[in-house]
């Protein structure tokens, strides 16, 4: 059973606030897969997934606080590790 590779995911509302955020996540995580559903997107990735504040800031033209993500976050899976610079989801196996 532990042979199966676990995926983490983050689901976000699909709106004007998240457009650049989604772009940044996909650019920084080449192994991630985008699933588009009505009103939302889900980004899944085998192993781990990271969101970098700097990468979002570059796209929106201002400083980005990673905790702003809470406003448009729908769901996630995996253990969370959060610092000022990076938000990472991963499983420990």
């Amino acid at each position: 059973m532990s042979r199966t590779e676990s995926s983490v995911f983050v689901a976000l509302q699909a709106n004007a606030d998240t457009r650049e955020l989604v772009e940044a996540i996909l650019a920084d995580n080449p192994h991630a897969v985008l699933h588009e559903d009505p009103a939302m997107v889900r980004i899944s990735a085998v192993g781990s997934l990271s969101v970098h504040a700097e990468s979002v800031s570059e796209r929106i033209g201002r400083d980005y606080d990673l905790q702003e993500m809470h406003i448009n976050l729908i769901s996630l899976s995996g253990h969370v590790d959060e610092t000022d610079e990076t938000f990472t989801l991963s499983w420990a196996n």
């Binding site: 059973m1 199966t4 676990s6 995926s7 983490v8 559903d37 899976s77 196996n93």
Partner: peptide, 24 residues
């Protein structure tokens, strides 16, 4: 949008599967 069985696959089988493998 999706059937119950399809939602189940993503949010239970994949998601809880990953969790229980993590807790092994």
């Amino acid at each position: 949008v999706m059937s119950w069985a399809e939602a189940w696959e993503i949010y239970f089988e994949e998601n809880c599967g990953a969790l229980f493998r993590d807790l092994e």
